[in-house]
Amino acid sequence: MNKKEVNKGKTMSNILLCVSGGIAAYKAIDLASRLSQGGHTVKTILSANAQRFVSQLSFAAITAQSTHSDMFADPDPIAHIHLADWADLVVIAPATANIMAKAAYGIADDLISTTLLAHTKPKLWVPAMNVNMYNNPATQTNLKTLRDRGDFVLEPVSGHLACGYSGKGKYPPNEEVVAAVNCYLHYGRDLEGIRVLVTAGATEEPIDAMRKITNNSSGKMGLSLCRALALRGAKVSLVHGSMKYPVPYYLYEVVSAPTVQEMHSEVTQRQKDQDWIIKCAAVSDYRPAQAIEGKLKKSSEVLNLELEPTQDILAYLSEHKPKGQKLIGFAAQSDELIPNAKKKLQKKNLDMICANYLSTSGKADTAITVIKAKDQENPVQLDGPKELVAHKIIDQIKEL
Rank of each mutant, 00 (worst) to 15 (best):
G9T: 14
G9K: 14
N14D: 08
V19W: 09
I23N: 02
I23M: 13
A32F: 05
S33Y: 12
L35P: 02
G38T: 05
L46A: 13
A50R: 07
A50H: 12
Q51S: 14
Q51F: 07
R52A: 14
F53N: 00
Q56H: 07
Q65A: 12
S66H: 09
S69I: 02
F72G: 01
P75I: 01
P77W: 08
A84S: 13
D88A: 13
D88W: 08
A93P: 02
P94F: 00
T96P: 03
A97C: 13
A103F: 05
G106H: 15
G106R: 15
A108I: 07
D109Y: 11
T115M: 04
A118T: 10
K123H: 10
V126D: 02
M129T: 04
M129E: 03
Y134M: 03
A138H: 14
T139K: 03
N142T: 01
L146R: 12
D151H: 15
V157P: 05
S158L: 10
C163H: 07
G164E: 06
G164M: 15
G164W: 13
Y165A: 14
G169W: 05
K170Y: 08
P172S: 08
P173I: 08
V178Q: 09
V178D: 03
G188I: 12
G193L: 03
G193Y: 11
A202Y: 12
T203P: 02
P206L: 03
P206V: 00
D208F: 01
D208P: 11
S217V: 04
M221K: 06
C226K: 00
A230V: 08
L231S: 02
V236S: 02
L238G: 00
G241W: 06
P246K: 05
Y249L: 04
Y252G: 03
V255W: 05
V255M: 11
T259I: 12
H264T: 04
S265K: 11
Q269C: 15
R270S: 14
D273E: 15
I278P: 06
I278D: 00
I278R: 03
A289N: 04
A289L: 05
E293A: 14
G294Y: 00
K297E: 10
K297L: 05
K298H: 01
S300C: 11
S300P: 07
V302R: 12
L303Y: 08
L305N: 02
D312W: 11
I313K: 10
Y316H: 09
H320R: 04
K321Q: 13
G324F: 13
K326N: 06
F330K: 00
A332S: 12
Q333R: 11
N340M: 10
N349V: 09
N349L: 09
N349R: 14
M352R: 03
C354H: 07
S361Q: 13
S361N: 10
G362H: 06
K363N: 13
D365P: 04
T366K: 06
I368H: 07
I371W: 04
K372C: 12
Q376R: 08
Q376K: 07
E377S: 08
E377P: 00
E377H: 14
D383K: 15
P385G: 03
E387V: 10
L388F: 06
A390T: 06
K392Y: 09
K398Q: 13
L400A: 08
